[in-house]
Structures are given as structure tokens and as C-alpha cells.
Measured scan of single mutants.
Amino acid sequence: TLFEALYDYEARTEDDLSFHKGEKFQILNSSEGDWWEARSLTTGETGYIPSIYLAPV
């Protein structure tokens, strides 16, 4: 399942991933609670993103 960003997000740590509204992600690991490891389909970068900023596509 792909997810789309509902809002912009600016990374706060080196493990976080910055993204823009409308960016799409492949989720790599969603077992860490509210922060999911994801790969951006726009940039190819991976990192942790807040799941509350996402909606399934």
C-alpha cells in the first residue's frame, strides 16, 4: 500500500525524512508506533516519518 503526505514536514533529527504535501511513500516498517520507516517515491530517500501526516492512496 502506498501512502501520500497530507502536509509538509521538516525533519527534526537525522533519522527523520523531510517531505512535501502530496509526496508518495512506500512504507518499509510500520511496527515502531506512530513513526514509520518509509521510502519517498519522489526522492528515493528513506527515513522516519510521522504516520499521522499520511493517508493511504
Rank of each mutant, 00 (worst) to 15 (best):
1 T>A: 13
1 T>S: 11
1 T>V: 13
1 T>E: 10
2 L>N: 05
2 L>P: 04
2 L>Y: 11
2 L>M: 09
2 L>T: 08
2 L>D: 04
2 L>C: 08
2 L>K: 05
3 F>D: 00
3 F>Q: 03
3 F>A: 04
3 F>R: 03
3 F>H: 05
3 F>I: 02
4 E>R: 06
4 E>T: 09
4 E>K: 06
4 E>N: 04
5 A>H: 01
5 A>L: 05
5 A>C: 02
5 A>W: 01
5 A>D: 00
5 A>F: 01
6 L>G: 02
6 L>P: 00
6 L>E: 04
6 L>C: 06
6 L>W: 05
6 L>I: 11
6 L>S: 04
6 L>Q: 07
7 Y>R: 10
7 Y>F: 13
7 Y>E: 10
7 Y>S: 09
7 Y>K: 09
8 D>A: 08
8 D>W: 05
8 D>F: 04
9 Y>P: 00
9 Y>A: 02
9 Y>R: 05
9 Y>G: 04
10 E>A: 11
10 E>T: 13
10 E>I: 14
10 E>W: 09
10 E>L: 10
10 E>F: 10
10 E>V: 12
11 A>P: 05
11 A>E: 03
11 A>D: 02
11 A>K: 10
11 A>R: 09
11 A>F: 03
11 A>T: 06
11 A>S: 13
12 R>W: 08
12 R>T: 13
12 R>H: 10
12 R>C: 11
12 R>E: 12
12 R>Y: 08
13 T>H: 15
13 T>G: 15
13 T>C: 13
13 T>W: 13
13 T>L: 10
13 T>S: 14
13 T>R: 14
14 E>S: 12
14 E>G: 13
14 E>C: 08
14 E>K: 12
14 E>N: 12
14 E>A: 12
14 E>F: 09
15 D>C: 11
15 D>M: 15
15 D>I: 13
15 D>V: 14
15 D>H: 15
15 D>W: 15
15 D>S: 15
16 D>E: 15
16 D>P: 02
16 D>C: 10
16 D>S: 15
16 D>Y: 13
16 D>W: 08
16 D>Q: 15
17 L>S: 02
17 L>Q: 03
17 L>F: 14
17 L>R: 03
17 L>W: 06
17 L>C: 03
17 L>T: 03
18 S>H: 05
18 S>I: 02
18 S>L: 01
18 S>F: 03
18 S>E: 03
19 F>N: 00
19 F>G: 01
19 F>Q: 00
19 F>A: 06
19 F>C: 06
19 F>P: 00
20 H>M: 11
20 H>S: 14
20 H>D: 06
20 H>N: 10
20 H>C: 07
20 H>W: 08
20 H>T: 14
21 K>W: 04
21 K>H: 05
21 K>E: 05
21 K>L: 05
21 K>T: 07
21 K>Y: 05
22 G>M: 03
22 G>I: 01
22 G>W: 05
22 G>Y: 06
22 G>D: 03
23 E>Q: 07
23 E>H: 06
23 E>D: 14
23 E>V: 02
23 E>P: 00
24 K>L: 15
24 K>V: 14
24 K>W: 15
24 K>A: 05
24 K>R: 15
24 K>E: 05
24 K>Q: 13
24 K>I: 15
25 F>E: 00
25 F>Y: 02
25 F>R: 00
25 F>I: 02
25 F>W: 02
25 F>G: 00
26 Q>R: 08
26 Q>A: 09
26 Q>K: 09
26 Q>E: 14
26 Q>F: 14
26 Q>Y: 15
27 I>S: 01
27 I>D: 00
27 I>M: 03
27 I>Q: 01
27 I>G: 01
27 I>K: 03
27 I>L: 07
27 I>W: 01
27 I>C: 03
28 L>D: 03
28 L>T: 06
28 L>N: 04
28 L>P: 02
29 N>T: 08
29 N>M: 07
29 N>P: 05
29 N>W: 07
29 N>A: 08
29 N>G: 10
29 N>Q: 08
29 N>D: 14
29 N>S: 11
29 N>K: 08
29 N>R: 07
29 N>L: 06
29 N>Y: 07
29 N>F: 07
30 S>L: 10
30 S>P: 08
30 S>R: 13
30 S>F: 15
30 S>D: 13
31 S>W: 10
31 S>V: 11
31 S>R: 10
31 S>F: 10
31 S>H: 10
31 S>P: 10
32 E>N: 15
32 E>F: 12
32 E>D: 15
32 E>C: 11
32 E>Y: 13
33 G>C: 09
33 G>S: 14
33 G>A: 14
33 G>L: 13
33 G>W: 10
33 G>K: 13
34 D>G: 11
34 D>R: 06
34 D>V: 09
34 D>C: 10
34 D>L: 11
34 D>M: 12
34 D>S: 10
35 W>H: 08
35 W>K: 11
35 W>E: 05
35 W>D: 05
35 W>P: 08
35 W>L: 09
35 W>N: 07
36 W>N: 01
36 W>C: 03
36 W>T: 02
36 W>F: 06
36 W>E: 01
36 W>Q: 02
36 W>H: 01
36 W>K: 02
36 W>A: 02
37 E>C: 11
37 E>D: 04
37 E>G: 04
37 E>V: 15
37 E>T: 10
37 E>P: 04
37 E>Q: 12
37 E>A: 07
38 A>H: 01
38 A>C: 09
38 A>S: 04
38 A>N: 00
39 R>G: 02
39 R>L: 12
40 S>W: 01
40 S>G: 03
40 S>D: 03
40 S>E: 03
40 S>A: 06
40 S>P: 01
40 S>I: 05
40 S>R: 12
41 L>W: 06
41 L>Q: 08
41 L>R: 02
41 L>A: 05
41 L>M: 11
41 L>S: 04
41 L>V: 09
41 L>I: 09
41 L>F: 08
42 T>W: 12
42 T>Q: 10
42 T>H: 09
42 T>N: 09
42 T>P: 01
42 T>S: 12
43 T>D: 03
43 T>M: 01
43 T>K: 03
43 T>N: 06
43 T>G: 02
43 T>V: 01
43 T>I: 01
43 T>Q: 02
44 G>Q: 07
44 G>K: 05
44 G>H: 07
44 G>L: 07
45 E>Y: 10
45 E>W: 08
45 E>V: 11
45 E>L: 15
45 E>S: 10
45 E>M: 15
45 E>Q: 15
46 T>V: 14
46 T>Q: 11
46 T>R: 10
46 T>F: 07
46 T>W: 08
46 T>I: 15
46 T>C: 08
46 T>K: 11
47 G>W: 04
47 G>E: 01
47 G>H: 07
47 G>P: 00
47 G>C: 03
47 G>D: 01
47 G>S: 03
48 Y>I: 11
48 Y>H: 08
48 Y>P: 03
48 Y>W: 15
48 Y>G: 04
48 Y>R: 15
49 I>L: 07
49 I>S: 01
49 I>G: 01
50 P>Q: 14
50 P>E: 07
50 P>I: 06
50 P>V: 05
51 S>L: 07
51 S>K: 14
51 S>P: 08
51 S>H: 11
52 I>M: 13
52 I>V: 12
52 I>W: 14
52 I>E: 11
52 I>R: 14
52 I>D: 13
53 Y>P: 01
53 Y>M: 13
53 Y>S: 08
53 Y>I: 07
53 Y>A: 14
53 Y>C: 08
53 Y>D: 02
53 Y>W: 08
54 L>H: 00
54 L>P: 00
54 L>T: 02
54 L>D: 00
54 L>V: 12
55 A>V: 13
55 A>G: 09
55 A>H: 10
55 A>R: 13
55 A>K: 14
55 A>W: 10
56 P>L: 09
56 P>E: 09
56 P>Y: 06
56 P>M: 09
56 P>R: 06
56 P>F: 07
56 P>D: 05
56 P>A: 10
57 V>G: 04
57 V>C: 08
57 V>Y: 10
57 V>R: 02
57 V>N: 04
57 V>A: 08
57 V>W: 10
57 V>Q: 05
57 V>S: 09
